[in-house]
Design a protein around this nucleic acid. Structure first.
Length: 208
DNA sequence: CACCAGGAATGTA
DNA sequence: TACATTCATGGT
């Protein structure tokens, strides 16, 4: 009767091992502030861009020792061209360099990641969604994966699988978000695992 | 050479 | 509100 819970169980059976393995390596349940900031940066860089190119950009940032939001912000204000050079492989570098500045400005002027994690979900979502360069998907990815907030992420993978599994044929972001949210417990761990399983499933599907 | 990858901003009617 | 266009790299 509940297609969403059935899908969740099916994905756990098929990819549960991958979730315990590679996913937990990169996206542990307990994260350092620096790991949370890397996820925030990555969520901007990955907009309409494949993860391999994002990885190249993150490698450049690491090599240049520019991985925290503070360091991104300092470099962006002092020498945008240098920041652009580092994130170039991720594409859209003129836009994304500005987006990284607007997001890091917000986190730095509001007391940093730890302080911002204390904000209430609905307030936080409005504030992050209002930032330049942050639409619904990027916003919710940041809230769910970087800040451990219970909000379900809708992306192209989620749309694909919900169409294929006859969950919904609509594409509207907030409509789909409600459909998934209604069927699940409001728990960030569940949301992270479910969405991660969808990503793993769809990426393996396209590799064939 | 054409097409795509976990989007979002901007402009138009 | 609802679409169309633009942004840009690296892989296939």
């Amino acid at each position: 009767m509940n297609k969403i819970l059935d899908l969740f169980e099916k994905l756990k059976l098929e990819h549960g091992e991958a979730l315990q393995g590679q996913w937990m390596l990169w996206c542990k349940r307990q994260k350092t502030v620096l790991q949370r900031e890397e996820i925030i940066i990555g969520s901007i860089l990955t907009q309409n861009t494949n993860w391999k190119n994002v990885g190249l950009a993150l490698d450049n940032l690491k090599e240049a020792k520019v991985l925290s939001l503070k360091e991104i912000n300092d470099l962006g204000k002092k020498d945008v061209e240098k920041l652009i050079e580092l994130i170039r492989p991720a594409g859209y570098f003129n836009s994304k360099s500005k987006y990284l500045l607007s997001v890091s400005d917000y986190f730095l002027t509001n007391g940093g990641v730890k302080k911002i994690m204390e904000k209430e979900l609905s307030v936080l979502r409005k504030e992050v969604l209002a930032l330049k360069g942050v639409g619904p998907e990027t916003c919710d990815s940041i809230l769910l994966y970087a800040l451990d907030k219970p909000i379900f992420v809708i992306d192209e993978y989620t749309r694909r699988i919900s169409r294929r599994e006859k969950i919904s044929y609509k594409k509207d972001y907030h409509y789909l978000q409600k459909v998934f949210t209604r069927a699940l417990l409001k728990d960030f761990g569940q949301y992270q695992d479910f969405h991660a399983l969808i990503v793993i499933n769809e990426q393996r599907m396209s590799r064939i």
